[in-house]
């Protein structure tokens, strides 16, 4: 089997771009899940503060510590809400991208050909809300797309698993002519992503 390898000059501007407008936001219920988790933490903190106050008879210090923790939880809740609005993904023919981060914006892309396995995980709160997290593992860093509806997560997982498998099974010598593989030639999506939820 001969390997066809070309090294023609390329114009960087001609390469397909990662369009920032084409990212799909996660399910709005994800915010509720995050806030529910934080509310649970707040209840635990408040409970500990009450117990300590009751046991020691002191009021001031438990109140101060509890107040600081509540402030931290409120700040975390605000950050979590902002983070949930920013998390979005983009599925293209050859890669999956995730946009996240409030203070530090991150856009990470994992080519399908580097994916080792893909799974769908569901925590207790996610199960309650009907959500799921898509976990994509590579030999290097992993990517997790949270806040997907279970149906979307399963569909994306299916597509990603198929693409990741297909890439390897395609003989190298057929790739340039038989498969629309190159981003340089065409990076269109022939798979329709889930409809973005109404904000």
């Amino acid at each position: 089997m001969s390997e066809r390898f070309t090294n023609e000059p390329m114009v960087v501007d001609d390469l397909p771009r990662l369009h920032h407008g084409a990212f799909v936001s996660v399910d709005p219920r994800y915010v509720r899940g995050q806030l529910a988790g934080l509310a649970g933490s707040a209840v635990v903190v408040a409970g500990i503060a009450v117990v300590v106050s009751w046991q020691s008879g002191a009021v001031l210090w438990p109140a101060i510590v509890g107040g600081v923790l509540v402030f931290a939880l409120v700040a975390s809740a605000i950050l979590a809400a902002l983070e949930a609005r920013r998390i979005a993904y983009q599925l293209r023919e050859h890669d999956l991208s995730l946009r996240s981060g409030v203070i530090r914006h991150r856009t990470e892309t994992i080519p399908f050909s580097r994916i080792q396995h893909v799974s769908v995980g569901r925590g207790v709160i996610e199960r309650f809300l009907g959500l799921a997290t898509l976990e994509v593992s590579s030999a290097g860093p992993d990517i997790a797309v949270p806040g997907l509806s279970l149906a979307d997560a399963e569909r994306i997982k299916q597509v990603v698993a198929e693409r990741a498998g297909v890439d390897d099974e395609t003989p190298d010598d057929q790739t340039p002519d038989d498969e629309p593989a190159g981003r340089g030639r065409d990076a269109r999506n022939d798979w329709a992503p889930p409809t973005p939820p109404a904000s």
Binding site: L15, P16, L18, D95, T175, A181
Partner: peptide
């Protein structure tokens, strides 16, 4: 990033 992705996704070695 686009150059690197292009390199990864078109190089089947």
């Amino acid at each position: 990033r686009d150059v690197i992705l292009h390199g990864v996704e078109t190089d089947h070695r």
